[in-house]
Design a protein around this nucleic acid. Structure first.
Length: 274
DNA sequence: TTGTGTTTTATTGCCTCC
DNA sequence: GGAGGCAATAAAACACAA
């Protein structure tokens, strides 16, 4: 626990005595000696009472005192004993008052710095949050587009399989392969733009049943990642083409074994080429 | 004038350092 | 163990609206 030092107590007494002397000066010439002695003795008690109150009463520092303290605080916010004594002498304050003032001033500075740091953190948080919300919106929009494309694709697959069944019923087996080739060339292209970003998707859906698993999405936004992607050596030679495939349809395609971990590649494409 | 919120001065209790 | 720092708090001083 911190205690008052002897010098602090002495300072308090001196300041009390000073105020008593000032008051006595004002009244000294007015009354007779006996009356004055009586008054003095009464006042003595009053002053003792006042003095005890004065030690508890708070007095605001003068503007000049505060200015001098502020100036010193700017130089160094910690108070060494020498500087405390010097300031105490210069400003007519008790050393303890100087120490308390510096202590409170440090506390005020800390509060201010905390407020400033909080403001900085909050503004950077707000910026991040805005960015996150934009990305989230963009993500939602892309999900919606993906759903639409998938439904469109399944719709096309149903239609093409119906056509194939009809053709099979009407056409001899030798001509089936020709029609198959024709169907392969019929591709529907969709151009999709994301509202949240400049992402552009080029979608090509094959109406052929044999190639129904091949649906192409070109991504101009590198952040977007679509799973199960691989190159098509048949129709689209351009780079950056990524395939979105329907897992359920993929099984029938011979190419699905090409990258299989369980089975080695058949190299069928190599031998048929020769 | 008065009630209320804010600022300033001062105290208390705990901790660390020498 | 004394000196000094800090956090929490009290209380006086001050500002200001109603």
């Amino acid at each position: 626990m911190k205690r008052f030092t002897s010098s602090d107590s002495l300072d308090a007494i001196i300041s009390i005595c000073q105020s008593k002397d000032e008051k006595s000066l004002k009244n000294n010439q007015v009354y007779s000696r006996e009356f004055q002695a009586m008054i003095d003795s009464l006042e003595e008690e009053d002053y003792r009472e006042e003095a005890s109150q004065a030690t508890e009463k708070k007095r605001r520092l003068s503007l000049n005192q505060v200015k001098a303290l502020e100036k010193n605080f700017e130089v160094e916010n910690k108070l060494e004993p020498d500087r405390k004594a010097k300031l105490s002498e210069e400003l007519g304050l008790q050393p303890r008052q100087i120490a308390v003032w510096f202590q409170n001033r440090r506390a005020r500075l800390k509060t201010k710095e905390l407020e400033r740091d909080y403001g900085l953190l909050k503004s950077s948080y707000d910026v991040l949050k805005l960015d996150y919300n934009n990305l989230e919106q963009e993500h939602e929009a892309l999900k919606v587009q993906l759903r639409e494309l998938k439904s469109k694709l399944s719709q096309e697959n149903e239609e093409s399989s119906q056509v194939a069944t009809e053709v099979e019923e009407e056409t001899p087996v030798s001509e089936q392969s020709k029609n198959q080739g024709l169907c392969d060339d019929v591709n529907a292209q969709l151009l999709i733009s994301s509202p949240a970003s400049s992402t552009t998707l080029h979608f090509t859906g094959s109406s052929s049943s044999s190639l129904s698993s091949m649906n192409w999405v070109q991504l101009s936004d590198p952040r977007t990642i679509l799973s199960n992607a691989y190159h098509d050596h048949h129709h689209h030679q351009q780079s950056h083409f990524v395939k979105v495939e329907e897992q359920s349809l993929f099984n029938s395609d011979a190419s699905c074994n090409f990258f299989s971990v369980d089975q080695p590649p058949t190299l069928q494409w190599y031998f048929t080429g020769q």
